[in-house]
Computed example of a mutant assay.
Amino acid sequence: MTSQHTSSSKAAPTKIVTTSTGRILRISAEEVAAATRAPAAPAAPTAASVDPARRADVLFRVRRDEGHELSAWWMIGAFVVTSGLVILLLSGVPGVA
């Protein structure tokens, strides 16, 4: 796991952590301090720690658990099928070379 610290004059200092699967997590200093102080008591999710991808107004974006990410082969297959469909449909248009 790789980590780096970031800070700016306006934003609260954060720590960026890269997991073994390549997911990049941004953790605030308060979350790091809370995790190191009392790891025994599970904290209830607050508005600040709720994943923004799981908000009610986000329609299609879903952040899945570690190890359950969508395979890149689905996107490659969708591209091949869409390209084949476009070529098939354009082959029926008269006057196209």
Results as ranks from 00 to 15, higher is better:
Met1Cys: 03
Thr2Ile: 04
Gln4Trp: 01
His5Cys: 09
Ser7Asp: 13
Ser8His: 02
Ser8Lys: 01
Ser9Val: 12
Lys10Gly: 13
Ala11Asn: 12
Ala12Trp: 01
Ala12Lys: 06
Ala12Gly: 11
Pro13Ile: 07
Pro13Trp: 01
Thr14His: 05
Thr14Met: 10
Thr14Lys: 04
Lys15Val: 13
Ile16Lys: 00
Ile16Cys: 07
Thr18Asn: 00
Thr19Cys: 11
Thr21His: 11
Gly22Val: 06
Gly22Glu: 05
Gly22Asn: 05
Arg23Pro: 03
Ile24Gly: 01
Leu25Arg: 00
Leu25Thr: 01
Leu25Gly: 01
Leu25Met: 04
Arg26Asp: 07
Arg26Ile: 10
Ile27Glu: 04
Ser28Lys: 04
Ala29Gly: 08
Glu31Asp: 12
Ala34Trp: 10
Ala34Thr: 08
Thr36Phe: 08
Thr36Ser: 06
Arg37Leu: 08
Ala40Phe: 12
Pro42Asp: 02
Ala43Pro: 11
Pro45Phe: 01
Pro45Glu: 04
Thr46His: 01
Ala47Glu: 02
Ala47Gln: 08
Ala48Phe: 06
Ala48Asn: 05
Ala48His: 03
Val50Ser: 01
Val50Trp: 05
Asp51Gly: 01
Asp51Gln: 03
Asp51Val: 07
Ala53Ser: 07
Arg54Met: 04
Arg54Gln: 06
Ala56Gln: 09
Ala56His: 13
Asp57His: 09
Asp57Tyr: 09
Asp57Lys: 09
Val58Gln: 01
Phe60His: 13
Phe60Arg: 11
Val62Gln: 07
Arg63Gly: 04
Arg63Trp: 03
Arg64Ile: 00
Glu66Cys: 04
Gly67Lys: 00
Gly67Ala: 02
Gly67His: 02
Gly67Tyr: 06
Glu69Leu: 11
Glu69His: 14
Leu70Tyr: 08
Leu70Ser: 11
Leu70His: 08
Leu70Val: 15
Leu70Pro: 09
Ser71Ala: 12
Ser71Arg: 10
Ser71Pro: 11
Trp73Thr: 14
Trp74Arg: 15
Trp74Thr: 14
Met75Val: 15
Ile76Arg: 12
Ile76Met: 11
Gly77Lys: 13
Gly77His: 06
Ala78Pro: 04
Ala78Leu: 15
Val80Ala: 13
Val80Cys: 10
Val80His: 03
Val80Lys: 05
Thr82Phe: 05
Ser83Phe: 15
Ser83Arg: 02
Gly84Ile: 09
Val86Gln: 00
Ile87Leu: 14
Leu88Ser: 04
Leu89Phe: 09
Leu89Ile: 13
Leu89Lys: 09
Leu90Val: 09
Gly92Leu: 09
Pro94Thr: 14
Ala97Lys: 15
